[in-house]
Design a protein around this nucleic acid. Structure first.
Lengths: 314, 314
DNA sequence: TGTCAAGTTTGTCTAGGACAAAATGAATGA
DNA sequence: TCATTCATTTTGTCCTAGACAAACTTGACA
C-alpha cells in the first residue's frame, strides 16, 4: 500500500484534488510543497502520497484555514488539525446518529426507507430544516475528519435525491406561482441544495423547473425567458471560491431582465457580506417560504417596492 | 444585444467554453484567434462575441473537426459548417419528432408523460435502444446545428432522469447478481448514459448501485470493496478527450482487484481501438445484457476464462 | 464593540519555448 | 480493394519566473 509508487502528472492532480495547476506550481515555489519528482522532459510527477496530502490540505482550506498554516505539513499533523476542527457542529440527535450509521454501513435501501419514514413523520418542511440541514452539516464534519469517505457521501446524496425527487413529483403544480427556475452556474456541480430548495418551494405552491447544474449565464437568461420565470434561484456550495460566487451573481443579475427576481442560497453565499441590488440572499430554508409570500404580496400591489416591503417587515 | 461589450477574463472563458487557458493562449499565438483586448495589467479580456465564436468552435471540435480548419473562422462560416455536419443521423420517426417538439417547446410535464407512455408501450429495453438512444443522437445533432439550446438539453436530461429513476426504483433487486457499481471518473459529468445502463442492468436482474458522477479512482476502489461489487461500470461521453479516457481506464484497472470486472461504455469509448486486458468495451445496450449472461455463466464454471468464453461464442 | 488604514498572503495571469501524443497522408503489403 | 506501417504535421499540455490585485490579517482609533 505504501510502496505503490504510482505517479501522476500535474493535470491529473488538478482534476483529482481540485487544486489548479498554477496554484500547485506556486505552492512548490513558496512553501516547498508539493515536491514532485521530475521525469526526462522536466515534467512534474506527483507520487501518490503527496496527492493524498493535497486532498487533506484541500479539505482544511475549504473549511476556512489558510495555506501558510497547512501547506507542507505531514499527514499526521494534517489529520490532527482535521480532527479538532470543531466548526458549528449541530446537536447530534438519535435520529441523526442512525442516518450516519446507515451511511457508514452503505445500506442504501435502508437509508432510503429511513428518509421516507422521516418525511411522513415530520412533514417535508421540518424534514428538510430539522433533519437534512443538520445532517448535511454533520456529514460535512465527518468527511472533514475522514470518518466518511467521498463515495459514502455520493451514496448519501444519491439516495436523498431519489427520495426528494419522488416527493416533489407528487406535489408539483404546473400552474403554481411564482414560476421559479433553479440551476447552478458553471463550476458549481453540487445539486443537492438546489433540490432541497425545489422541495421547499414546490411545497409552498410554486411552479419549480430544475435546469440541472452548470448552466452558462446566457443560457439561464434564455431559459428564464422561454419559461417566463418570475424568479431564478441559484445555489452555491462552500467549495466555490467566494470571488467566483460574487462575480457570477453580478454577471447573471446584469444579464437578467429587472423583472426577474434573483434568489441565491447555499453555504457558499453565507460568506457574502451584502447582497447586490436586485439579489436576495437566502439563509435557512424558511427564507424561501418568506420570499415566496413577499413575492405574492408584491404582485398583488404592483407599485410597492419589494425591498422596501422587506425592510418594513423586519 | 450586439453592443453588449461585456468582457471576460481568461479564467471565466475557460469555465464557460470548456477550453483550457493554455489552449486559448496558444491559439492566439498560432491562429491569431481569439484576439482579446488588454486591460492595464496586460491581462486578456475577451469580448462576448469572441466567447460566442469559441462556443461554436468547441462544438465543431467535439464533433470531430480539427482546430486548423475552424479556429479563426467568423460566425457565419462556423454556422455554415455546423449546418452540414451530417454525422450518422438516425432515421427520424414520428415518435422521435414528437419528443423533439416537446423539448423545443419546453413542455416538461408533457415530456415526462410521453416518456412514461413510451416505456409502457415498448418495454424498458426497447424504449432505451429504439427510442432514447436515437433520440440522444438526434438531440446531439440538433444541438450541433443550434436548433436546441443547452438549457433545453438540460431540461430533457432532467425529465428523462426522473422517469428512469422511477422505473429503476420499481425493478431494483437488492439481492440480484452480479453486484454492479456505476460511476464516472473525475472530469466526466454526464450521468445520463450511466442511468440508462443502470436501467438495462437492473432489468436484467443485477443489483446496481449508482455512485453519482466524478468519483476519484481510489474512492471507486474503496466503494467496490465496501459494496463487494463484482463489476464496476464506467461511462464516458464524447466530450471527454480520448487520451483522458484511456489513461483513466488504465489507472482504475490497475488499482482494482483482478476479481472485479470493469465494463466501460458511452460514446467516449467508441473511439477507443482496443480494450486493455481485463476491460470490456460496451457498445449498444444489448452488450450489457450479454455481459451479464456471460458473467453468470463464468460464475457457474469458475475455472473457465471469461475472455476465452466470449471468443468461443463469437 | 465597530470601522478604517496599512501590511501580508495568496490565487491567477503573463511570456515564449518545448515536447510528446494524436491525426494525417503516403507507401507498402495481403 | 482494403488493412498496416512509417514519416510528417498538428495540437494540447507543461515548463520558468515574474507580477499584480483581491482577500485576509493586524493594529490603531473612535
Amino acid at each position: 500500500m505504501k510502496n505503490n509508487n504510482i505517479l501522476f502528472n500535474i493535470g491529473v492532480v488538478e482534476r483529482e484534488t481540485g487544486i489548479g495547476k498554477d496554484t500547485l506550481r506556486v505552492w512548490e515555489r513558496r512553501y516547498g510543497f508539493p515536491l514532485p519528482v521530475r521525469c526526462e522532459g522536466e515534467d512534474r510527477l506527483y507520487p501518490e502520497n503527496q496527492v493524498e496530502q493535497l486532498r487533506l490540505i484541500k479539505r482544511l482550506l475549504d473549511s476556512g484555514m489558510r495555506p501558510a498554516r497547512v501547506v507542507g505539513l505531514g499527514v499526521v499533523e494534517l489529520n490532527a488539525l482535521l480532527q479538532d476542527a470543531p466548526e458549528n457542529e449541530p446537536v447530534i440527535s438519535a435520529r441523526l446518529q442512525e442516518f450516519i450509521r446507515l451511511v457508514k454501513t452503505h445500506q442504501t435501501v435502508a437509508l432510503r426507507l429511513a428518509f421516507n419514514r422521516a418525511i411522513f413523520q415530520q412533514g417535508l418542511n421540518e424534514f428538510l430544516s430539522k433533519t437534512i440541514s443538520p445532517l448535511n452539516q454533520l456529514i460535512g464534519a465527518c468527511w472533514l475528519r475522514g470518518e466518511i469517505r467521498i463515495f459514502e457521501e455520493h451514496l448519501y446524496s444519491e439516495q436523498l435525491a431519489l427520495v426528494l425527487n419522488l416527493a416533489i413529483a407528487a406535489i408539483h403544480d404546473p400552474n403554481g406561482t411564482p414560476r421559479i427556475l433553479l440551476t447552478t452556474l458553471p463550476g458549481e456541480e453540487h445539486a443537492l441544495g438546489l433540490l432541497m430548495s425545489k422541495a421547499t418551494m414546490s411545497l409552498a405552491g410554486a411552479n419549480c423547473v430544475m435546469l440541472g447544474v452548470q448552466t452558462p449565464v446566457n443560457e439561464i437568461v434564455l431559459a428564464a425567458k422561454a419559461h417566463q420565470s418570475d424568479v431564478v434561484t441559484l445555489s452555491f456550495s462552500s467549495a466555490m471560491p467566494p470571488a467566483q460566487v460574487k462575480a457570477g451573481i453580478a454577471q447573471l443579475r446584469y444579464a437578467l431582465p429587472q423583472t426577474v427576481a434573483l434568489w441565491v442560497g447555499g453555504s457558499g453565499v453565507a460568506r457574502q457580506r451584502k447582497a447586490d441590488d436586485g439579489v436576495q440572499l437566502m439563509g435557512p430554508f424558511s427564507d424561501l417560504d418568506n420570499a415566496i409570500s413577499l413575492w405574492r404580496e408584491a404582485v398583488s400591489y404592483p407599485c410597492v417596492d419589494l425591498a422596501a416591503l422587506e425592510r418594513c417587515r423586519s
